[in-house]
């Protein structure tokens, strides 16, 4: 595959002869391609001219400072919030036509967990898209949900009320719900935020499992230390695409400095120093 994203914003990997024109340039092979997207909240732009195309079968980390528009990028791609301009294609077609190919893991804090539901109830919601809207879930739906919970190591907590689960367990319930969707491309909004070590490694195992099955996963990620370890590709974002491409090429000190505007340089350096000393490397 040679369709990895380019290093800077402004041009895409696809046809660029009419750059900036109204016609869209989307690669139908890209699991997700974003062209010229701008998003604004109350007229204040949050994302500017985003051009990006993901490569199939890769784990992609979306990295950037707070307020960089990472979650917004996902939400706008999934039509959850309106775009001021630009377009997004999932395998060459609008999201509306490709919903079945897309799995979504929202931020854990975005919902009220004191809701009368058990873990398996929540996971079953991932299958609602495939059920008739007037019929209750059938037995085989429940079984699929239980299987997904097993995959994230939550089999024995399947019938527990969701507010009685720990943060990490709640996150795993969300992941299981995305799993039963059996999508081709997954968008995950900070799945690693505030989870315990067991959940973190469960998520990483799951990401690799998804990758082995040829899925593409875009993950909003905060922990700079683990980016190299977890992700094949990285998308550095700060209102615009600072850089994107294979992690080993793009996740550089220089690019990070551009992304974090120099403010966090010290923090990043400290983090890297710690990581080095822990691993015992140079």
């Amino acid at each position: 595959m040679s369709t990895t994203g380019t290093k800077t914003s402004g041009d895409t990997n696809t046809v660029t002869d009419a750059a900036g024109s109204l016609s869209t340039h989307h690669d139908p092979r890209a699991p997700v391609s974003i062209h010229d997207m701008t998003v604004a909240y109350h007229r204040k732009p949050v994302l500017w001219d985003i051009d990006y195309a993901a490569t199939e079968g890769r784990l992609v980390g979306i990295v950037g400072p707070n307020g960089a528009g990472k979650s917004t990028l996902i939400k706008a791609s999934l039509d959850l919030i309106p775009k001021a301009s630009g377009s997004v294609r999932i395998y060459g077609k609008p999201y509306k036509k490709q919903r079945k190919l897309v799995g979504y893991v929202p931020q854990r804090e975005s919902i009220d967990w004191d809701f009368p539901a058990s873990a398996v109830d929540v996971v079953t919601m991932g299958l609602y898209g495939r059920m008739s809207w007037w019929l209750p879930p059938r037995k085989h739906h429940k079984e699929q949900a239980l299987h997904a919970l097993e995959q994230v190591g939550m089999a024995d907590l399947a019938h527990r009320q969701i507010s009685k689960l720990s943060g990490g367990q709640q996150q795993r319930v969300f992941l299981a719900r995305a799993l039963v969707q059996d999508a081709s491309i997954y968008f995950m909004d900070e799945p690693f935020a505030g989870v315990d070590a067991a959940t973190e490694s469960a998520i990483v195992a799951l990401l690799n499992e998804l990758k082995a099955r040829g899925k593409t996963v875009l993950v909003v990620h905060h922990d700079l230390q683990t980016v190299r370890e977890y992700f094949d590709d990285v998308l550095l974002l700060n209102m615009r695409v600072v850089a994107c491409g294979p992690t080993k090429d793009v996740f550089t000190h220089e690019n990070l400095q551009k992304t974090y505007g120099g403010k966090l340089t010290l923090l990043v350096e400290a983090a890297e120093a710690i990581a080095r000393s822990v691993r015992g490397g140079p």
Binding site: K75, L78, D79, L80, R99, V102, Y104, P106, S110, I111, F115, A117, D121, V122, M125, Y128, G129, M131, W133, L135, P136, P137, R177
Partner: peptide, 16 residues
């Protein structure tokens, strides 16, 4: 089902 879904997680519902 629909009521349950939007009461619990509106964003997920609309992504579906």
């Amino acid at each position: 089902k629909e009521f349950r879904l939007i009461c619990f997680d509106q964003q997920f519902a609309s992504s579906q």
